[in-house]
Design a protein around this nucleic acid. Sequence first.
DNA 1: CAGTTTCATCGAACCGGTTCGATTTAATCA
DNA 2: TGATTAAATCGAACCGGTTCGATGAAACTG
Lengths: 335, 335
Amino acid sequence: MATIRDVAKLADVSVSTVSLALSNPARVSPKTLEKIRHAVAAVGFVADPLAQSLARGRSRMIGFVVGNVGNPFFGDIRRELENYALDHNHFVLVTDSSGKTGREKAMVEHLIGLKTAGLALAPSGHDQDYLDFVAGLNVPIVCFDQKVAGIERDFVGSDNHLAGAMLTEHLLQLGHRRIAFITGPSHMHTATERYRGFTDTMANAGVEVNPNFVVDGQFTRTAGYEAAMRLLIQPERPTAILGANNTVALSALQAMQELGFRCPEDISLAMIDNVQWSSVITPRITMVVQDTLALGGIIARRLMHRITNPQGAVEPPQDFVLTPKFVSGNSCRRV
Amino acid sequence: MATIRDVAKLADVSVSTVSLALSNPARVSPKTLEKIRHAVAAVGFVADPLAQSLARGRSRMIGFVVGNVGNPFFGDIRRELENYALDHNHFVLVTDSSGKTGREKAMVEHLIGLKTAGLALAPSGHDQDYLDFVAGLNVPIVCFDQKVAGIERDFVGSDNHLAGAMLTEHLLQLGHRRIAFITGPSHMHTATERYRGFTDTMANAGVEVNPNFVVDGQFTRTAGYEAAMRLLIQPERPTAILGANNTVALSALQAMQELGFRCPEDISLAMIDNVQWSSVITPRITMVVQDTLALGGIIARRLMHRITNPQGAVEPPQDFVLTPKFVSGNSCRRV
DNA sequence: CAGTTTCATCGAACCGGTTCGATTTAATCA
DNA sequence: TGATTAAATCGAACCGGTTCGATGAAACTG
């Protein structure tokens, strides 16, 4: 590996001049610049990113921290961020916390140790400890997906209240009254907002929500499955089930299939968030999806803005909330 | 951030002694060690990984390079590797090349620049240029998924010939003779092996393969969809379709649904590799799946072995080929 | 007890860049 | 043309660790 000193020797200039020429060519005379360029090419010099980061106290890497990279929602966002970052000469490191706050902390700390230029973070925690932790991080951070009260950072996400409301409204329009809702964890903003969207819309329509029709699916497969089972074994069953996310909704579909209920003939189903291969799942589920590409684009732009602009770091945090989109399927029937 | 010099000052010893104490406590006298430990705790010292890597010429990071982190196949492997690495005090950096060889190269080069201790690589290329590139990388590497002729590295994967053969045999047993096969890219070892498994089994059974029944799906959604369409519009249609991977098979299912063919009543379908939520896809597809957890475990162990063992680096490359598993669904009917 | 080992510790060089004040060179002005 | 200013280049310190030969003290040998 050729070092900057090899280049300096060959070009017959000082090391500092080479460094200057590489980072700010305009401040070097044309003929020295030429010499240096030749030398760089001759020895095949490539700057060592580690040494650079150590000296600068900052690297060209961006940390992407989510709970599940396998989720297509995060996948789309990651791709957008990656493309944008690459165009701006930055490099994305992906980490997966498996939704565990402890692991997320460790990973973030490691990324900080690597002197990452910035972080795109889907927060997994919510308690005071976590808030302090995030507040103490001294790098540009754009949070997304989960709006956490108390985190003073840029946030990019969707209008989850609206998402819940849209599907509820749709089911009401189709004549459903006995609508069940499978919720997510109560400490998650997306979960509570979606649920509020449901209850508010029901209240507006003057339809009472049967407390037995609200079950907790934790946004996980196992809890979602059990929650759905609890719904389905009731003597008075709901005519429609609304899943607060893709996982619990599909778990419910599985439960329905196993118990022999047909969808939508026996029970209608709707969900928030898309899933891979939704087009070959029978029935095609009616859903509200987030504009992942737009979200990813905003996250990328906002983060790079903060990173590259000297004054970007001190701009007050800002929220970007996008409107989700209704995608009609054939999992909801008129009653 | 406290540095090692702060610790040295407080403990009233030299910097080199602190460094020694931290990396090899046994070589330091008990009482100095105690002093140093106190000082470390007092100033809250944590070694800067960047500085460490620079000085050592090697980091504690492992690069994980695949074409699509969202693919559950890679996801499972990543998780296994991550768990194992974490237990051994290493950290996994995940990168996604989107299947583009150029991007993969850039990412690998970046990881090498970061002085990663090792690489788990799902190769995306196959030409001489690529072979030279991989051969030139001077770090422990374990390749997986795609066996590339000419890469002299450890390889971990499944018996793809067998995978193709198992499903073909299954369809033959059910009485199918007009079996179609949707292939993957001809330069991919997995694709050709699976196809060979198909043709060999057909030949053994004395059943001729209709050339019109072999179409190229490129392992992608669009090509897979088109390929399936080509199969389905033929006057003499196949009675069963075998998809060389999950993507082309599900694309075929979609095509069938759109053209009004029922599966398995009209056409049977089988595929290689699992997909998320396969249990709620109707019909449940009969498939052959790879043991991703085992694959991940082997990759992790092999890589860490090469990394941590001084002589591990020179051990000759080895192939680990696992037997895939048959998972029965209800997408294949007897004819 | 002198002579040789062993052990603990230290100092300095090093990894490969960046940065900034100082110095030399070139350009501008009176 | 000499004085002033701007531009180009350089040297040395620095980022925060590691490594290795040198040094001095303690332990062992005969």
